[in-house]
Simulated scan of single mutants.
Amino acid sequence: MGMSVTIAAADEDDAEEILKLQYLCYQSEAELYGDYSLEPLTQSLAALRAELGAGRVLAARLGTEVVGSVRGAVDSEGTAVITGLIVHPRLRRHGLGGRLLDAIEEQLAAESAVRYRLAVGRRSEISLRLCRERGYIPTGGTERVSRALTLVTLEKPVAEVPALAASR
């Protein structure tokens, strides 16, 4: 490829590019579930901008192009809810999704998260595999979003970093 992908905080100027990428990335999910009314395909730019201000949003860039993104926020109980993990179709299967997940976990851990939680479509095998490989386990919780789409909730505890534990 020639250039390496960098991951950094997204800002307001990235919102439109992230929204376009989200729309592109969720086409395959919509096809898988036969449902083109999935929330990521109908989200407005204003709603995405609100998410940018409410939590952490990371963007992966290849040069100046946004080729991936992930969002997360820590609630009052210490649960870091991770959403919106997307990778441009041409860059899938190269480890970028895992890098984005690792990066958002690291940032959310710094905000006193005690567990990570995310939801994945029951038929989304690639996403489920990525989560399992990273230590997430199903909680038993599911949410029926539509006739075809059921989300599976997965969690994992925040691992204590040995260097931090030693300094306490």
Rank of each mutant, 00 (worst) to 15 (best):
R117H: 00
E77W: 14
S124H: 13
D35G: 15
R71T: 09
T153D: 06
Y136T: 00
L58E: 12
K20A: 15
A8D: 13
L21H: 06
S76P: 10
E125A: 04
K156L: 01
L41P: 08
L108M: 02
R93C: 06
P162C: 06
R117F: 00
L38W: 10
L108Q: 00
L85E: 05
G141R: 14
R129V: 07
A60N: 14
R93M: 10
L48S: 05
V120K: 02
R147N: 09
C25T: 13
L101N: 08
A113K: 02
A73G: 05
A109T: 06
Y116E: 04
I18L: 07
P89T: 04
M1Y: 08
G78V: 04
D13Q: 15
H94I: 14
A47Y: 09
A103F: 12
L45Q: 09
E39P: 02
A59F: 10
D35C: 04
A166G: 13
S76D: 15
L91N: 03
I137E: 15
A15D: 02
P157E: 03
A46S: 11
A73W: 03
A113P: 01
G34K: 07
E105C: 05
P40I: 06
P157A: 02
L118G: 01
T79G: 06
L108Y: 02
L52I: 08
R93T: 11
T142M: 12
G98Q: 07
L38V: 03
C131L: 11
G55A: 04
R49W: 05
L21N: 10
V66K: 12
R123G: 06
L108R: 04
S69K: 11
E65M: 07
H94S: 15
A148T: 14
T150F: 00
L21M: 07
E31K: 15
Q27C: 14
T83D: 10
A165S: 09
L96G: 05
S167V: 11
G121V: 04
P138H: 00
G34M: 12
R71S: 13
L91C: 01
L48R: 08
S76E: 15
Q107P: 01
R122N: 14
L52Y: 11
E51V: 05
V81T: 05
R92F: 05
M1A: 14
R56N: 07
T142K: 13
E31P: 15
I18K: 00
L52C: 08
E51M: 15
R132D: 03
A166P: 04
E133C: 11
L32T: 08
I104G: 04
T150N: 05
A8I: 06
V114M: 07
R117N: 00
E106P: 07
E111M: 10
R123N: 13
G68H: 13
T153L: 07
E125Y: 03
A10E: 07
I137D: 09
R144Y: 02
L21Q: 14
R129Q: 06
A15V: 01
R132A: 06
E106A: 14
R168L: 09
I137N: 07
R93F: 02
R134C: 05
L45D: 04
T139H: 01
T142G: 10
R129E: 12
E16L: 08
L128C: 05
S146F: 04
R99Q: 14
Q27N: 09
V120W: 02
